[in-house]
């Protein structure tokens, strides 16, 4: 028995499949692939599959970590191949290796956000991001009651880069991710839209990597 960390690529329309649905999808995929998983031993046994960090609806992922507990001798390479043979289009295992870092070590997500230059220019985007005072609304809880909270986006925004080429506009950005603070690039764009008083939509947004607090890649 050993723990295995898979790195999933989730592309195209699969970005509309939610975190909860991904768990069920994976559970069925490992069954179809015939991968011997360790089952929990409670009243209601289920296979041990853990998505380390949710990916917001509408965002693609290039390497999303999922932990499995394998019973027996099947090699990481074989697990990867078997799963890739049964996963739906748009989803694939890009790597499989024993985990190096603890899940709690995840601190940031690195994103590529493709924008429409007709909506906003690179220079304006730079000004808005650097100008400070960005906020967005996030649903939260106060006790049992659902409330809307205002989040200070600028305080969480540290590192970004704007790239313009061949009539496209690409924003590279690092945002907090993990079990305590989370901000996704679509919320960042909401804050930008709010500040400039005109909407900016993402043509697409991809999480390219997860980082630890020291800025090194989570593995």
């Amino acid at each position: 028995m050993y723990d295995l960390r898979l790195w999933l690529s989730k592309k195209g329309s699969l970005k509309y499949v939610s975190h909860l649905d991904m768990f069920r999808l994976m559970q069925r995929a490992v069954r179809r692939a015939g991968i011997p998983l360790w089952y929990t031993e409670g009243f209601n046994p289920h296979p041990y599959i853990s998505f380390l960090l949710a990916l917001s609806l509408g965002i693609e992922g290039e390497g999303e970590p999922v932990d499995l507990r394998i019973v027996g001798e099947m090699t990481p390479e074989e697990v990867r191949e078997r799963l890739n043979a049964v996963l739906p289009r748009g989803l694939s295992v890009v790597a499989a290796a024993p985990p190096q870092d603890k899940p709690a070590a995840i601190a940031f997500g690195r994103y590529d956000v493709y924008l429409d230059p007709a909506q906003i220019s690179g220079a304006e985007l730079q000004d808005v991001l650097a100008g400070g005072g960005l906020t967005c609304q996030k649903s939260g809880k106060s006790g049992h009651k659902k409330i809307m909270k205002t989040v200070d986006v600028s305080a969480q925004l540290r590192e970004w880069q704007i790239e313009e080429k061949d009539g496209s506009l690409l924003l590279h950005v690092v945002l907090p991710a993990g079990s305590t603070v989370n901000l996704n690039p679509l919320q960042l764009l909401e804050a930008v839209s709010e500040k400039r008083g005109a909407p900016v939509y993402a043509c697409s947004a991809v999480r390219t990597a997860l980082l630890k607090a020291d800025g090194k890649e989570f593995r």
Binding site: G12, S13, L14, Y16, V17, S18, D21, R28, L57, G58, V86, L87, P88, R89, G90, L186, Y201
Partner: peptide, 24 residues
């Protein structure tokens, strides 16, 4: 996916109802 569809899906509930591509 169709560009127009791509633009509206983030605005509806449960967009996965409308994307197809399910296994089998």
């Amino acid at each position: 996916m169709d560009k127009k569809l791509e633009r509206i899906l983030p605005r509806v509930q449960k967009p996965a109802r409308y994307i197809g591509g399910e296994l089998n």
